[in-house]
């Protein structure tokens, strides 16, 4: 094969690979949003920044901290992938009924990682800890949350879950989607 033809062919393959990566990420996201089950997670937002992806609201969850009850616990290592089995608490929010190193045969679950571990507790990293917003809105969301918390009102996220894959759909402040909440407070997009 002539060299220019080979180079052209290789470049074509590379282009396909470069398209395939975002396309697969989009497909996974879309499928989960369309077909996944919606779960509500109680959260607390703060506003940080990522130079590549922009301003976002960082979300921390009470569920990140779990007691170590499983017999497998002592073998688990920092950074290890675990599967958190989902269940609903009395108020309709998500909770973890069990942690396992293998995905469960039935029921919804999400893949999480061990951030660090103590003797009787494990701190997890949940894969939906960022809610990206327009750069002026993210700090406002944090301020709104701080204000709201003083009046003991809640913030939560709706996360779609399908086959262990989780996609964050919306962040709610006091029962309203965050952008609507900010609009209602008169702090919408500039």
């Amino acid at each position: 094969m002539k060299r220019p033809l080979l180079v052209g062919l290789l470049f074509l393959l590379l282009c396909l690979a470069q398209w395939a990566v975002p396309a697969m990420m989009i497909q996974a996201g879309e499928k989960t949003l369309e077909q996944g089950t919606a779960w509500r997670f109680r959260t607390a937002p703060v506003d940080p920044y990522d130079p590549f992806v922009g301003r976002f609201v960082r979300l921390s969850y009470a569920l990140e901290r779990q007691p170590l009850v499983s017999a497998q616990g002592p073998e688990w290592q920092q950074g290890q992938k675990l599967y958190a089995h989902l269940a609903e608490d009395a108020q309709g929010f998500a909770e973890f009924s069990e942690l396992s190193s293998e995905p469960p045969a039935d029921g919804d679950y999400i893949a999480v990682r061990i951030r660090y571990k103590t003797r009787d507790e494990v701190w997890l990293h949940l894969p939906f800890d960022r809610f990206y917003m327009e750069e002026h809105q993210a700090p406002q969301a944090e301020l709104a949350y701080a204000e709201m918390q003083r009046e003991s009102r809640e913030a939560w996220t709706v996360v779609r879950v399908r086959d262990g894959h989780a996609v964050l759909e919306e962040l709610y402040l006091d029962g309203l989607p965050v952008r609507e909440y900010l609009d209602s407070m008169g702090t919408g997009p500039r």
Partner: peptide
């Protein structure tokens, strides 16, 4: 552009900081 493209998908679907 490769980085920009992947980053925009991450932003659209709110993929977390995990990886």
């Amino acid at each position: 552009a490769i980085g920009a493209s992947i980053a925009l998908v991450e932003q659209t679907y709110h993929y977390g900081s995990g990886d």
